[in-house]
């Protein structure tokens, strides 16, 4: 391949990536920009988009608002708790699927896929009725459990793939050395699949943090999450774009920072998990 065509190819690659990156990032920048405007500037015509005095008032307003803080806390608790549960359960389950003689594996696998493909809208009213029946409407606990249940299948398949792609020989060697099952898990398996657990944790955390329909139906005041909180800025009386965009930034920020910090396991996780 001669040099000119390579230069051309590189140029083209950079062009495509540049355009795509700009397209990917633009809406975000726009949201950040709007979050720094007062209400009048925020709804003003886009021709005057840069003609404004930046203000932190939207953010300070949020941090002064107990409802926002309580929604943020609820989102945080639900995300952490559901993620922890999912990772533990999926690691055990993935191990059993990958390594053990498991009666009913096909049945269980089929049921898990049903949970993955069924539209959430089918489940919400029944879940609402069940949760109400046990007296837990508008509590965080059912949100934790439901989000856990909805995310277990994906995480389990991920862990299954990680166990599959790790060599059996080490385990066999450990077994021959007389290691107990607990030691085997702790000292051999977990370190091997730790990147998988990180991946499962990231995916689950994103899903739970971003969930809308389930918390919309099952939460009201005490168990209001950030996503539901954000939707209240669209009201009959006005659309408060400034505070809405500030909330959006605060919803986006943790997950983006979290994932960028852990980008390696995420990308590696998808690679290992999907194509070995």
């Amino acid at each position: 391949m001669n040099r000119r065509s390579r230069t051309l190819r590189h140029g083209l690659t950079y062009l495509v990536l540049g355009i795509a990156a700009a397209y990917a990032i633009f809406p975000l920048l726009w949201v950040v920009l709007t979050s720094l405007k007062n209400n009048r500037d925020a709804i003003a015509s886009a021709d005057r988009a840069f003609d404004f005095t930046p203000t932190w008032s939207n953010y300070s307003g949020l941090f002064d608002n107990p409802a926002f803080l309580s929604a943020a806390l609820t989102s945080f608790i639900v995300t952490v708790a559901a993620t922890a549960l999912v990772v533990v359960i999926a690691t055990l389950g993935g191990y059993a699927f990958a390594r053990l003689r498991l009666p009913g594996r096909r049945t269980l696998a089929s049921l898990m896929v049903i949970v993955q493909v069924i539209p959430i809208i089918v489940l919400v009213i029944p879940l609402f009725r069940i949760v109400s029946e046990v007296g837990l409407y508008d509590r965080s606990l059912p949100l934790v459990l439901i989000m856990t249940g909805l995310n277990i299948p994906f995480a389990t398949w991920l862990m299954l793939a990680f166990f599959r792609s790790s060599p059996v020989e080490i385990e066999e060697a450990a077994a021959i050395d007389g290691a107990s099952r607990f030691q085997l898990f702790r000292q051999v398996l977990i370190p091997i699949v730790a990147p998988g657990m990180a991946t499962a944790a990231i995916f689950t955390a994103i899903e739970v943090w971003n969930a809308f329909l389930v918390p919309l139906v099952l939460g009201q005041s005490e168990a209001q999450t950030l996503t539901v909180y954000a939707s209240q800025f669209i009201t009959y009386q006005e659309i408060n774009w400034g505070p809405l965009c500030a909330t959006a930034v605060l919803i986006f920020a943790p997950i983006v920072l979290f994932v960028l910090a852990l980008q390696r396991p995420l990308v590696k996780g998808i690679t290992t998990g999907s194509v070995k």
Partner: peptide
């Protein structure tokens, strides 16, 4: 007095669901 904000379109939904849940939320 504690205020809980709900999007306008959600008001009837939330009121009805709360009462059907049998729990006192407001």
């Amino acid at each position: 007095i504690e205020f809980v904000e709900v999007p306008t379109a959600q008001l009837p939904t939330k009121i009805i669901l709360a009462v059907q849940s049998g729990q006192q939320t407001f």
